[in-house]
Design a protein around this nucleic acid. Sequence first.
RNA 1: GUGGCUGUAGCUCAAUGGCAAGAGCGCCGGGACGUGACCCCGGAGACGCCGGUUCAACUCCGGUCGGCCACCCCA
Length: 444
Amino acid sequence: MSDRPIIRPRTLKGFRDFLPEAMQAREWLIDTARTVFRSHGYEPIDTPALEYTEILLGKGGAETDKQLYRFEDHGGRDVALRFDLTVPLARFVAQHIGELGVPFKRYHVGPVWRGENTQRGRYREFMQCDFDTIGTESLAADTEAALVIHDVFAALDIGEFTIHLNNRLVLAGLLAELGLADRTADVLRSIDKLPKIGRQGVAADLEELVGASPAQADRLLAALTVTGTNSEVLAQVAELAGGAADAGVAALTEVVQGLAAADVAASRVKVDLSIARGLDYYTGTVFETFLAEIPEIGSVCSGGRYDDLASIYTKQRLPGVGASLGIDRLLAALEEIGKLDAAAAAPSILMTMFDGSRSADYVGLAAMLRRGGLSVELYPEAKKLASQLKYADRKGHRLAVIIGDSEWETGTAQVKDMASRVSHTIDLTELLDTCRQLLGATAG
RNA sequence: GUGGCUGUAGCUCAAUGGCAAGAGCGCCGGGACGUGACCCCGGAGACGCCGGUUCAACUCCGGUCGGCCACCCCA
């Protein structure tokens, strides 16, 4: 015993520990996404957490905008932690595209860091999960990206969802037609508030902040709030834009038709011209994904097409399309609507320990069961049985194997079904079969 | 970045300017000493940190480090 003062255990603001329950949910989510990515031919990559600051900031990048964790390393280099996975991807493809070839499809799951203020669902260290196709302008890649989003959410089986589609060219055409093209960024920021402050609010915003005339605001909002089936919406918008949006409308049409051909339910795809976010950055198709049960948390998977990923690192033009799954936001949402229970991967058998001096025998039996394809955890000490069973209960084990002095003497074992509390006494030689049978019987 | 709220056992929450800070759940032990529900008994365990006011602070004030909420900003 030392009387040294102890250091208070704590984590930095915005940084989190993950307990097993939370971590299992994360792994389930990421594993599911990974399986879908691979099924479409996306390959995994990783890049360093730390990069040269100039790589991350690019030319004249505003450090304050990115809330960089930036410092000088031991060799005097100016370095920083990555704040997203897109910039590292740009550097990565610029550096390796020669050996990779195009099209290059990758997914990347990893932590990123931003020193910004924390709030609900926003941390300083958080996980991003991106997938992108680099090096092709074909709309087939856009369609595939949307299809991947669809397949991920279908595989997660967490209720209905809708992928909202827009195309930057449609809005660009509309704005050009209305004479607002020179104020695109401001207009987009206002449009973005549509769900929050409503049509009246945005109209006021457009007039006051952007300087649009009431007529301009009205025409723009009329186009954005067109309703109907996807093809009806597209037809109306084409008309409202007077032909200026034709390229965007054609692209959207092709993606929508592609998804239909892949048997994606029409209810899960919605052409939505009010999606403005990210349009600054994207140049074509734009996606956002909403969960039917909990739309208020916003998009849980967003992305789109960009013309040129890596122009600051290479002269080769590298267009691409991809999206990012909001892991933290999605998990928070699933917890809220109680969809995380199924995620707990329960181990199946707890081997209790009665006599510490025979621990080798318990180890041997547990190993035998594992060779038989079962998951077995051996309790590490000969604590009283009630404690061991309680532990089994807490860990979600379905069976407990109990072998004490009397069982050793008779060459038997007790196999206890945790749920029914029924204990079966069987011959030791039947242990594997009995466990298999009980697990099979209670599984369905 | 701005404003508001908040910080008591592992968790969720009480009370109080003054010698002994309570509960439920959880944990440990026992009753039934080899069977996880329930019940009974017993036990361990806390005022985030620093400073100030005061005869006296867990309680008031300030700071700090966290947490929550709204806004701002951004994907």
